[in-house]
């Protein structure tokens, strides 16, 4: 028996909007730790890892570890039917091939349940080792989204370089080149508006921009985003989900042939 009640149902709606274009089908894993997902995009270049910790749910019942295969496009369609202020409850019986999403309006005057078929998904689970990153950049998520969108109108790839001067995003295309440098800026009114750069070693990596633009669909989940970079390692683009956990996107770099 599985029963997860999330008072801030809009979080789950936002999570689905953030991942549905990157991944078609995925297994959601439910354990005492929380509700999680790990999945690769169809070209196996990017990986998404989601964790919503059990403590973040108002009610969390998961009698045994369970993995539920879902089509994320279909799940997003169902969650779009929930209001932004609705409480969302996920329910599944042991051995069942369906999951139920229950939506309750805040005043309890409207209660809806949507039942969705589960699917068997044979997915590869990857172990992600702890890594020491050469550089970690925290910046406003809206600023990062703006940079990715702007650069993708010029080129297809971005070079991210971190030096003591700041973090530089560069691209080139048929019409020309673009460089955007963000300097560390901690003298702002609100902490979420700061750009903070922790650098152990300078690092420069090249990535396909279209994946970054996909990751920025998670912008409504967090005011800030963290980029963790190391030479020859996938970049980690992390959006923290307040009080609950995170959504992390890993993107493999382009490497020398």
């Amino acid at each position: 028996m599985l029963e997860l009640r999330l008072v801030q149902g809009s979080l789950l709606k936002k999570v689905l909007e953030a991942v549905k274009d990157l991944v078609n089908d995925a297994n959601f894993d439910c354990s005492a730790t929380g509700f999680s997902l790990q999945a690769m995009d169809s070209s196996h270049v990017a990986l998404v890892a989601l964790l919503l910790r059990s403590e973040g749910f108002e009610h969390y019942r998961c009698d045994r570890n369970i993995s539920m295969g879902m089509n994320l496009g279909n799940m997003a369609k169902m969650l779009k039917c929930a209001g932004n202020d609705d409480i969302i409850t996920l329910k599944a019986d042991d051995g069942s091939d369906v999951v139920t999403f229950m939506f309750e309006s805040p005043t309890q005057d409207k209660i809806a349940d949507f039942e969705m078929k589960l699917m068997d998904i044979d997915s590869e689970h990857l172990g992600i080792p702890e890594a020491e990153y050469h550089a970690i950049v925290r910046m406003p998520s809206s600023e990062f989204a703006r940079i990715c969108k702007d650069l993708s109108s010029i080129g297809d790839t971005v070079v991210i370089s971190v030096t003591k001067e700041g973090v530089k995003f560069s691209t080139r295309g048929d019409i020309g080149t673009a460089n955007i440098v963000c300097r560390q800026n901690t003298t702002v009114d609100k902490p979420e508006e700061a750009t903070v750069i922790e650098m152990n070693e300078p690092v420069s990596l090249t990535f396909a921009l279209r994946y970054f633009n996909s990751f920025t669909k998670a912008t409504p989940l967090s005011n800030t985003v963290t980029l963790s970079l190391s030479s020859e390692l996938p970049v980690v683009v992390e959006y923290k989900i307040a009080e609950m956990g995170y959504i992390r996107f890993y993107l493999a770099p382009k490497i020398e042939d």
Binding site: A46, L126, G127, A252, I255
Partner: peptide, 14 residues
């Protein structure tokens, strides 16, 4: 020239 690496190059199957 750079080519696109896949994620499994860095993380092992668990």
């Amino acid at each position: 020239l750079k080519s696109q690496a896949r994620i499994a190059r860095f993380f092992r199957s668990s």
